[in-house]
Design a protein around this nucleic acid. Structure first.
Length: 819
RNA sequence: GCCGGGGUGGCGGAAUGGCAGACGCGUCCGACUCAAAAUCGGAUGGGGCGACUCGUGCGGGUUCGAAUCCCGCCCCCGGCACCA
């Protein structure tokens, strides 16, 4: 392709040509092991849901991940960079209900379309390892893993109140309920409560281990979010007796035993099992009315942002375990049945919620911690540290010491025990929907709950289900699916009709990529041992407390089952930000600010879109789309192409030799390498823009041709991860051999990259007064003399005594005057 | 409320103790052109004719020297939010 003076590069033709050539190269085979003698590198980017169209957000996530993988490959690593589809989930089923198209067909058509769009990105995905989670070859192993968890008691069924989305018509995991209004994360409908038999994974068994982030190179905020989500808290659990009821006791949990002498009442959750039996006859009507109201409140939307701490007196009294004093027992919905013991001791003087409740209901407030060094705030609880007062033999102790002593003493006396509670709940995995993995369990009238034998897997999802939004799984109404024979006794039995949460699919997909067609095991242990763990995992922060917690749990559980010896699946994690619309709002069809990558590729070519997305700013920051800004990368790549394609001008009189250009080439290699290592794609692009400018200037001045060609080849190499098509074209135009992507990453000579001469800044009292050129190796003494000789420095010193001269070799001299 | 991240030209951003604003967008001026596009060159934080001076959310501090470190505050974004 001949260059036309001053023109833009023919992106479409160049990209089509190279993509054709690349397609002729053999693919990896999908399950090969790392080549001996080379470090392996497993690059993984979160796989997409096949929603139908590739969004600019997918490009923003995947292009830099691809650039990094390509860079590692040129560095000599044996890289795998697989891609697949997270293909089960609600949108497919909703499309089926709305448009009468089968979820399988809808999903497969979307995948076919998205595969093409993904190819247009020019990413180095290894398609031979592709995984599609809605195919039986994949979900069969969800079922297999479910059974292994079931055998270990890590999957269990329990009748429990669960969050239910009336719009999606299914139960939700706790993590899928968001905000104080408790709405469905998908459709923002307020969730309701249902009491159902549900399947759970016992993630809480790993709560403490999940809190260990040692050795993880993860963004701080993700670690913090997981830590808060797990919500470990240490305290003491002990029992209160009920006055006049020697048979009845209830346990409370507190993190503040030091305030135990300040407990002036107790509060039980409205659902607490003891409430019915201890309520005084004259209080029964009020208590039952309150219970009914509380039950309704958790079912109906809770829109009131101002939380009133309501409650009613049961008329019963608890016996304080240390003082023997009777204190009233109330019920109130600010005490959660699902946390701790569902009951608390209330210490209004030192807990804001209890304080508020006591004020509202006229209950006594007793101070037992004296605020030290800070004024007591009138009309508020003192929650900070202090000396214990009115606390029996603990009076006078610092509250931290008192807490320790009280915990020991309560334990010794057999009254209470130290205990750790977690905010984390077990993972609710059953969904009353069709488009998911069937749970491989059979119910037999004679044998009870029976797991489907491994040999009978997969339990296939029948294709001829009815899609009606009934709130029950469509499988429940599918007689052919539901009726089966008991695997144990052969008698008539029924299948479980719930399907699994789609987060199960993505909890172990990184294993499946290693041997995607293995039909004897979920993955090949030899491949797993060779390739895992994932070296770099990239994706959005929105998965911080769901997917990333679940996949850590899965790896730990799989380790304990004996399937792997890993404890952490993804030791290194990087998050990209979010690309916003031109108006800085979230992109959405309803806002009309969606940027379509296909249109951009048609107009500018994939390389330009890639480079622009990386140049926009720090990857983790994201930011608004600026349609004008893309002109920068357009011009930059066009210039690279013209430099490679235009004929070289004849040598000029007094033209530069290659020295300065070579220095700049080495500096570019140094900077781009460091930037790609640290995922700083924006500054890597900036360095390449600078190099292309240096090459253009050298050429226009008729400089040394050998140095220019050397620089052009380096430019093509450095550009290869970022703009793979154009880099290939430039490499070929400059006579590079083979594919640019098969070349080793260029190295630099630090001595050559160093400046020949540096500008040393001369300051007087920290203010800039002059600049001088000096050798980078100039000694402190030389620089000091240089500064003191400067007329501008002398003028600024103005005859005052020089107190000190600070010299930073290679950088600056600061002359400090005065006494 | 608690936790985390952030605030730098007209805009995206660079610089993590040493020349603030790399690189780019935009704008202005010039070259090429019949003209335009494309391309190339120059200018571009504010003030001042100038020597200079002010300037990284605000106020203080440490330091020869602070966008960068420390203290206090304001604002923006994200997460969690009755978890005892």
């Amino acid at each position: 392709m001949a260059a036309v003076q001053g023109s833009r590069h023919p992106a479409a033709a160049i990209e089509a040509k190279w993509r054709r050539r690349w397609a002729e190269r053999p693919e990896g085979g999908g399950d090969r092991l790392p080549r001996p003698g080379r470090p392996k590198h497993y690059a993984l980017t979160m796989f997409p849901y096949p929603s139908g169209d590739l969004h600019i957000g997918h490009w923003y996530a995947m292009v830099p991940a691809d650039a990094h993988a390509r860079y590692r490959r040129m560095c000599g690593d044996d890289v795998i960079f697989p891609m697949g589809f997270d293909a089960f989930g609600l949108p497919a089923e909703n499309a089926a209900i709305r448009h009468g198209i089968h979820p399988l067909r809808w999903t497969r058509e979307n995948i076919a379309r998205m595969r093409g769009q993904l190819r247009s990105m020019g990413a180095s995905f290894d398609w031979s390892r592709e995984v599609v989670t809605c195919e039986p070859a994949y979900y069969r192993w969800n079922q297999w893993l479910f059974l292994r968890l079931f055998e270990r008691g890590l999957a269990y069924k329990r009748f429990a109140p669960v969050d239910f989305c009336p719009t999606c018509n299914t139960t939700l995991a706790r993590e899928q309920v968001v905000g104080p209004e408790r709405v469905c994360e998908r459709c923002e409908t307020p969730v309701t409560r249902r009491d159902l038999d549900q399947w759970f994974f016992r993630i809480t068994a790993y709560a403490d281990e999940l809190l260990d982030f040692g050795g993880l190179d993860w963004p701080e905020r993700v670690v913090t979010m997981q830590r808060n989500w797990i919500g470990r808290s240490e305290g003491v659990q002990f029992a209160f007796g009920v006055r006049g009821r020697p048979d009845a006791t209830f346990e409370v949990f507190t993190t503040r035993v030091d305030t135990i002498y300040g407990a002036t009442f107790c509060v039980l959750a409205p659902e607490h099992p003891l409430v019915a039996s201890i309520t005084a006859p004259e209080r029964r009507a009020d208590v039952e009315a309150y219970q009914a109201q509380a039950a309704r409140r958790s079912e109906i939307e809770r829109l009131s942002t101002e939380r009133e701490r309501t409650g009613v007196d049961t008329g019963a009294e608890a016996v304080h375990p240390l003082t023997g004093e009777p204190i009233p027992i109330w019920i109130g919905d600010y005490v959660l049945a699902s946390y701790g013991t569902g009951a608390i001791m209330a210490v209004p003087a030192h807990d804001e919620r209890d304080f508020d409740f006591a004020r509202r209901h006229g209950l006594p407030i007793r101070t037992v911690i004296a605020a030290e060094g800070e004024a007591a705030v009138p009309g508020a609880a003192h929650t900070g540290p202090g000396r214990m007062v009115a606390s029996g033999r603990y009076t006078g102790m610092r509250n931290e010491d008192g807490a320790r002593r009280l915990a020991e003493d309560l334990e010794a006396a057999g009254i209470g025990r130290r205990r750790t509670n977690y905010r984390l709940r077990d993972w609710l995995v059953s969904r009353q929907r069709y488009w998911g993995t069937p749970i491989p369990i059979v119910y037999c009238a004679r044998c009870g709950m029976v797991p489907v034998p491994d040999a009978d897997l997969p339990v296939l999802l029948p294709e001829d289900a009815q899609f009606l939004p009934t709130g029950e799984s469509p499988l429940r109404h599918h007689e052919g699916f539901r009726r089966t024979a008991c695997p144990r006794c052969g008698g008539p039995a029924e299948r479980e009709t719930d399907t699994m949460d789609t987060f199960v699919d993505s909890s172990w997909y990184q294993y499946r990529y290693l041997s995607p067609r293995d039909d004897r095991a979920p993955f090949d242990p030899a491949a797993a041992a060779a390739w895992l763990p994932v070296d770099v995992y990239t994706g959005g922060v929105e998965h911080a407390t769901m997917h990333l917690l679940y996949t850590r749990f899965f790896t730990k559980a799989m380790r304990d089952i004996g399937l792997t010896n890993l404890s952490e699946p993804m030791p290194r994690l990087r998050n990209q930000g979010v690309i916003l619309g031109e108006n800085s709002e979230k992109m959405s069809k309803s806002r009309g600010n969606v940027v379509n990558p296909d249109d951009l590729v048609d107009r500018y070519g994939a390389d330009v879109v890639r480079v622009y997305l990386m140049f926009i700013g720090p990857w983790e920051a994201g930011g608004p789309w600026n349609p004008q800004g893309i002109e920068g990368p357009v011009r930059f790549l066009a210039r690279c192409w013209r430099l490679a394609a235009d004929p070289y001008p004849p040598p000029a009189q007094g033209a530069p030799d290659g020295g300065e250009l070579r220095r700049r080439i080495h500096r570019a290699v140094r900077d781009v390498t460091a930037d790609l290592e640290r995922f700083a794609f924006n500054t890597a692009v900036a360095s390449l823009m600078t190099l292309s400018g240096d090459l253009a200037a050298h050429r226009d001045a008729g400089g040394d041709r050998a140095a220019f060609r050397e620089g052009m080849l380096v430019l093509a190499l450095l550009l290869a991860p970022l703009a793979p098509h154009l880099a290939e074209e430039c490499w070929a135009l400059q006579g590079g051999e083979g594919s640019v992507h098969d070349q080793p990453w260029p190295t630099f000579d630090p001595a050559l990259a160093a400046e020949e001469s540096v500008t040393v800044v001369l300051q007087v009292d920290g203010r800039l007064r002059d600049r001088r050129a000096a050798a980078p190796t100039a000694s402190e003494d030389e620089l000091r003399v240089l500064a003191l000789e400067s007329p501008k420095v002398q003028a600024a010193v103005a005859g005052r005594p020089v107190a000190r001269v600070v010299v930073v070799p290679g950088r600056l001299v600061n002359v400090v005057t005065g006494a």
